[in-house]
Design a protein around this nucleic acid. Structure first.
Lengths: 121, 121
DNA sequence: CCAGGGTATCGACGGCAATCGATATGGCTC
DNA sequence: GAGCCATATCGATTGCCGTCGATACCCTGG
């Protein structure tokens, strides 16, 4: 794999917790241009129907975790598409990934969501 | 076709407060497809650097309001672009518009932001 | 009225992102 | 090692959105 093809899609993706921690509450003081871009990138990670449903579906499991094969059918999306969205959520720090055998189990991280809530204050 | 697909297209301009009120907290129960689309549309309204800065800049004014001509220069964007973003925020219910003479004064609505925060719980 | 300034809309362009099929990668079982 | 299953990546396509210049709209003052 070449570094170029990898880095293209990763541009602008930082863990949400980091971004939110570096931003003042939205209505407290004017956002700088760089802060606004980071915060917007963080919000874009969840501003997508499939990713919202992924977070919701994973958390709704009895064990609060799910593997890809359990998520494609309820979402009505192909396996590559689900994998793509999970990668975006993973890079944003919104989910954790744990490999167990052939299966990759994803679980929701609640802290970044709480951080985002605070920035919207 | 018909009113159904029409109303779907209008979903994107639905006030955030309405959308958030019709959604359960994200991690409480699985989001239906329609709920996820509505919520994503609401989040997209603020998942944009220029619009975040607009909210922040307007609120930062001493009178908590600003007209377009005061916003183009600090944002470094053209007047049509600023007007476009303000329209998006207006349709999302995130700002109010009051015409006074030649000038249109915009102010931030805090309730929709609070509603969004709750849905992220 | 008419002129001028503030704001909104239009049309076009460019870039990004969501989606899929095909395929590669990784890990288990026999 | 061979075959298989779950997942990740690749390449291509498509639709959406942010941006701008040009222009239309609206209000006020003369």
């Amino acid at each position: 794999m070449t570094a170029t093809s990898m880095s293209v899609n990763i541009v602008g993706v930082q863990p949400i917790a980091t971004i939110a921690a570096s931003c003042p509450p939205l209505l407290q003081e004017p956002l700088a241009a760089a802060e606004a871009e980071n915060l917007a990138a963080a919000l874009k990670a969840i501003a997508e129907p499939a990713r919202l449903r992924l977070l919701s579906l994973i958390q709704a499991q009895p064990s609060h975790e799910a593997c890809v094969c359990h998520l494609t059918e309820p979402l009505g999306l192909s396996q590559p598409t689900v994998s793509h969205h999970l990668k975006v959520l993973l890079q944003a720090g919104l989910v954790e990934r744990e490999q167990r055998g052939n299966w990759a189990y994803f679980s929701v991280c609640k802290e970044p969501l709480a951080a985002l809530r605070e920035v919207l204050a």
